[in-house]
């Protein structure tokens, strides 16, 4: 600044200034503005409620309609694709004979045991991994590796180790979900801001109190979310387990139906599996939203 002022000649002639950026560079090309976004394709914008409901309904109705039309037209053999009516009848028949309830309960029970056990193990270990570097170093590499071993490939081993009762099925669900849950719970715990932990110490909290009164409540919605996401994997595994060896269960019922080419029965069972799964998912989602009411 001072240098410039001094350089100005007494006569008042404008001093030599270096060219401005505008003078130095040519003008940039201008792009046509992108215009106001349409409602339907605007990125991450809420849609009007009516359009949303419409889209949700269509996503269910359109495949159903295609199925109805294909079934009615006879374009596809019922052996491959039974008509919706036939599936409904098969489902009602199974329900009436009581086998549907027995099978569904057998399957659900296996999930409750196997997945419940997995969650009971994964949550404490995951919290430890997320809270203590020592636990993380000890557990993360192993669980990260084991997670990539396909659980279904363990079925023969489990049969050799545990025999043919309920235990190999429960163990399969456990193995197939516990590592995912551990890592995801640990991630949820690591979201806790360090500042929150430090401030808690200055308010007089001991380590255990920080864990129980700060880290756990903060991570709880994330933990429930992890449990909800991995629940879907448990469903996939239980059906695989039942295909191999069992007396009852929805997977077993599918295998039996296949033996007699009862495609309508298979479809009915698939629908039941889907419905139970969605119900569980919605229940967990509601739980999460209630627990996480405080989340900004």
């Amino acid at each position: 600044m001072a240098g410039l002022a001094k350089a100005r000649p007494a006569g008042g002639v404008a001093p030599e200034r270096p060219p401005t950026a505008r003078q130095l560079f040519g003008a940039l090309p201008r792009r046509r503005p992108s215009g106001p976004p349409g409602t339907l394709l605007a990125l991450r914008t809420p849609l009007p409620g009516r359009i949303r409901t419409l889209l949700v309904l269509a996503s269910v109705a359109v495949p159903l309609l295609v199925w109805l039309v294909l079934g009615a037209s006879g374009a596809v053999e019922p052996r491959f694709l039974p008509a919706p009516g036939a599936v409904w009848t098969a489902g009602v028949e199974m329900a009436r004979s009581g086998e549907l309830v027995t099978d569904a309960w057998a399957t659900v029970r296996r999930i409750l045991y196997g997945y419940g056990l997995g969650v009971a193990v994964a949550v404490p270990l995951g919290v430890a991994m997320g809270s203590f570097t020592a636990a993380r170093s000890a557990l993360e590499p192993v669980s990260g590796l084991l997670r990539y071993l396909p659980a279904a490939a363990f079925t023969p081993l489990l049969l050799i180790w545990l025999g043919i009762g309920e235990s190999p099925k429960i163990a399969l669900i456990f193995i197939g979900t516990v590592f995912f849950n551990m890592l995801m719970v640990a991630d949820a715990v690591r979201q806790v801001p360090l500042e929150l932990v430090n401030v808690s110490y200055t308010l007089g909290a001991r380590r255990g109190e920080v864990l129980g009164k700060v880290i756990l409540p903060y991570a709880l919605p994330g933990i429930v979310d992890a449990v909800r996401v991995n629940f879907a994997a448990a469903w996939g595994l239980v059906v695989v387990a039942e295909l191999v060896n069992s007396q009852e269960g929805l997977g077993k019922r599918i295998l039996l139906a296949q033996r007699f080419t009862q495609t309508d029965k298979i479809f009915a069972i698939l629908v039941v599996i889907g419905l139970i799964g969605v119900t569980a998912d919605v229940a967990l989602r509601i739980t999460r939203d209630r627990i996480g009411r405080w989340v900004p």
């Binding site: 110490y201 200055t202 308010l203 007089g204």
Partner: peptide, 27 residues
Amino acid sequence: PGPDRGLVLQSGAVYPWRTVERNVAFG
């Protein structure tokens, strides 16, 4: 650290799941 030296940070670091009242009651 201890409650004889209270610390307030720029971010506040209040407990988001606790109401105002229960935040104040923490210690």
